[in-house]
Amino acid sequence: MNQELNRETIEQAYRYMLTARKLDERLAQLYRAGDIFGGVFLGKGQEALSVSVGMALRKGDIYAPLIRDGAGRLAFGETVLDALRNCLGSPLGPMRARDGNVHRGRPREGCMAMISHLGASISVVNGALMAKRMKGESGFMGAACIGEGATSTGAFHEALNQAAIEKLPLLLVVANNQYAYSTPTTMQFACKKLTDKAVGYGVTAHEVDGTDLESCWNTLQSAARKAREGEGPQLIVAELLRLCGHGEHDDAHYVTDDMKQSNVGKDCMELARTLMTSQHGFSDQELQEWETSTQKDINHSISIVKQEGGPDPYTHSWNPLATRELNEQANGIAK
């Protein structure tokens, strides 16, 4: 059964999107203030798609978000504290300061912790789904999120083919945000549309306007239903524009004005806000209040995380193996 985007669900979706956007804005500020080690990667412009994926998933499903999936992560159960702890390097974060920024997850809870290699998460989701089937579970689904750049990798090809052969309940969500770092789509693929690839793999494709929450919602709900009902992998391609640089170190000067002014350049947050007020009866004042309280909650979380400090390299465990006695103790620090 598809879940409708009604007054209740759109409020939830919008709140996740808003939190993700506000969190991104604060992370950008923290980055500029020098409070963050390494990079900061934002999901600006991709919240509508991301939240639709996160809310199509249920507890017990598998989710492999990519770098611009703050909204989807929140919808799947990630806390703002987890996100901030990872970005600020708190030892209390999900990766305990061993990995940072968008590289975070809680695999035991179904949220995979991405590695940097694009496309590599898809087969991990496949394997988790195969395992669930072997264990006799039913009704489950997995979602792997990538950008259009990852569709050029061998890992994408191998994993989508594998999912199709195994008829796995996989949503492979491609956010075509027009640039892989600075590489335009013309240098990334030569097919007319990325959905054209689906036929070659024998999977169903869905194309959606990634700036429009309602379209994203309906497409993801429909694809999820098909996947759960045994119709195999669903390839979803959303057209949108990354409304920021690849990371905050990147001013995205290569994004053309034409692109910014085209359909994909619309801000999904603004469109969602209009949808909330014009179609679902929310007032501007109400939305403004949410924004203020979200901002306040995020600031409160930042103050908590900043007090937690960083990891202690001298008391840190340097064992890479779970089997303690097999860890080589060659490194002088390792005891």
């Binding site: 590599a120 998460s121 087969s123 991990v124 496949n126 195969m130 890992a155 994993a159 083919n161 594998q162």
Partner: peptide, 8 residues
């Protein structure tokens, strides 16, 4: 597909 085999 060794990549997908090991990833899975």
């Amino acid at each position: 597909s060794e990549d997908a085999m090991i990833g899975s």
